[in-house]
């Protein structure tokens, strides 16, 4: 069953002067529990596609259905609410809140959702222990390594049990060992929790572990390989 479905999706910049097709007529589905990479050269439209699917940007044309809801017709406020409830984000630069501890960062989304404190504590502590950060709960981001920060970011994205996680170049700033650890962890969570992962990446280490690889060229769908 598709958790994400785009139909005739376009994102065109400078429509009235010299149009630039950042996303050019993409119709694609992503099913639950998939571990998919979107790859392509720089400027191929990977990030733009993820931004559209994540409700961070609006399409010029076409439709986007996420978890059974049309997000392209939602207001900005509705999209923010939708992101909070249905989508987890992992960024290249981790983007943890520097003034919060590892635990507080990981629990942030659940707290914004207004989940009960007990449930939040149990879920977040369990996940942080699962990713090997059980002893770093009270450390601030500045006290964590890049790999540890990214693991906290993954737990933050995952803790609220979103319908899927969008990860934009999550391993780009990690050394090989940290990247493998992170990928192993995400793969494990994908299998254990049944969470759909959608990556944009250049990183061959990520591509090698993906169950599906979607290639974009000049904003258009070039290939779609299932493994």
């Amino acid at each position: 069953m598709p958790v994400i479905e785009t139909q005739d999706l376009f994102k065109i910049y400078n429509e009235e002067t010299v149009p630039v097709y950042a996303v050019n007529n993409i119709s694609i589905q992503f099913d639950t529990k998939e571990f998919t990479c979107v790859i392509g050269p720089s400027g191929s439209g990977k990030t733009t596609l993820l931004n559209l699917i994540g409700g961070l940007d609006s399409p010029s044309k076409g439709t986007i259905n996420v978890a059974g809801q049309r997000i392209d017709t939602m207001s900005e406020s509705e999209r923010i609410r939708f992101r909070l409830e249905h989508i987890g984000f992992v960024f290249q630069h981790y983007n943890l809140i520097p003034v919060l501890t590892a635990y507080e960062n990981a629990a942030f989304i659940m707290q914004l959702q207004g989940r009960p404190e007990e449930e939040t504590r149990e879920r977040v502590t369990g996940l942080l222990e699962q990713v090997g950060l059980g002893n770093r709960l009270h450390a601030r981001p500045s006290e964590l390594s890049g790999g540890e920060q990214q693991r906290v970011a993954v737990v933050r994205a995952l803790a609220s049990k979103p319908d899927f996680i969008l990860a934009d170049e999550p391993t780009a700033n990690l050394d090989t060992k940290a990247a493998f650890n992170l990928l192993d962890m995400m793969k494990q969570l994908n299998e254990d929790e049944g969470i759909t992962f959608l990556f944009s990446t250049h990183d061959q280490r990520v591509i090698d572990r993906a169950s599906r690889v979607v290639t974009l060229v000049d904003g258009a769908l070039h290939s779609d390989e299932r493994r």
Partner: peptide
Amino acid sequence: VLISLGMQ
């Protein structure tokens, strides 16, 4: 980032 994550 906070707005991206879902903070109104």
